Amino acid sequence: MTRLTHVLSRPARRPGLTYREVGATRTPEALPAGYHHLRHSTVVGHGRDAFQAAGAAVTTWRMHRASGARVRADAERAWPGAHLEVSLGAGPLRLGVPCAVIWTAYETERIGFAYGTLTGHPECGEESFVVELEPDCAVRFTITAFSRPATWYTRLAGPLVPRLQHAFARHLGRTLARLVRT
């Protein structure tokens, strides 16, 4: 298997990142303590073509945009150091959250990236979006995240925030499966 994984150089010194455990989503079995952990995995297709389509949709922000999120990014594709703002909602209720891509994987059987929270994000942590081609040719999409509140309103929302994050992860999985089918 060919491995081509890129990690932001000296990520802990990256200005604006709001957490210390930069890159921890690369090893989902060892997520840092003191955070809410999220892991959602679903099969979104089958075969190499579905894998390529899913990987492209994830790394070009198409999955996020098709889910109803607005994405403004300084790069067309995920690459370490790229900045983006993902926003949900409408009008004055639209909330934009700034992130930076921490690591990417463009491999033979694994494609994806992780972004970390920047100053101004209501949460503190990291989230990865990875597509893998399994030995039986199933295409599996996995979201792994660790986060904790960074603002008064996310602290006030308490257990509602992790529930919303999990619901959005399931929504992204359904969105990606739909994109792969079309």
Rank of each mutant, 00 (worst) to 15 (best):
F146S: 03
H171L: 13
R140I: 07
P80Y: 05
T117K: 05
R181M: 01
A145R: 05
V7P: 00
A114Q: 06
R163H: 06
H40Q: 13
W61Q: 04
G158Q: 04
R10A: 14
A33H: 10
I102K: 01
G34A: 06
R3A: 11
R14I: 00
S67W: 05
S87L: 05
A69D: 05
R10L: 07
A30E: 14
H83R: 15
R72K: 10
S147N: 06
H40R: 14
R77S: 11
E21S: 13
W152A: 12
A30D: 14
R155H: 10
H64A: 12
A150Y: 01
W152V: 07
R62E: 15
A30R: 15
V130Y: 01
G116P: 10
Q165C: 03
H166Q: 13
V7I: 14
G112C: 10
E107V: 00
E29Y: 00
H166P: 00
F129M: 11
R10D: 15
G89W: 01
P122H: 06
H40Y: 14
I102R: 01
H171R: 14
V180G: 02
V101K: 07
H83I: 02
L156H: 02
E76K: 07
L176G: 06
E123Q: 13
P98A: 10
A66W: 03
S147T: 12
I102W: 02
L17Y: 04
G116H: 08
R48S: 11
E107C: 15
E132I: 02
T144P: 01
R174P: 00
H46R: 15
G68M: 08
R3Y: 07
G120P: 11
R48A: 14
A73M: 05
A78M: 11
D49Y: 00
R174S: 08
L179V: 05
P98G: 09
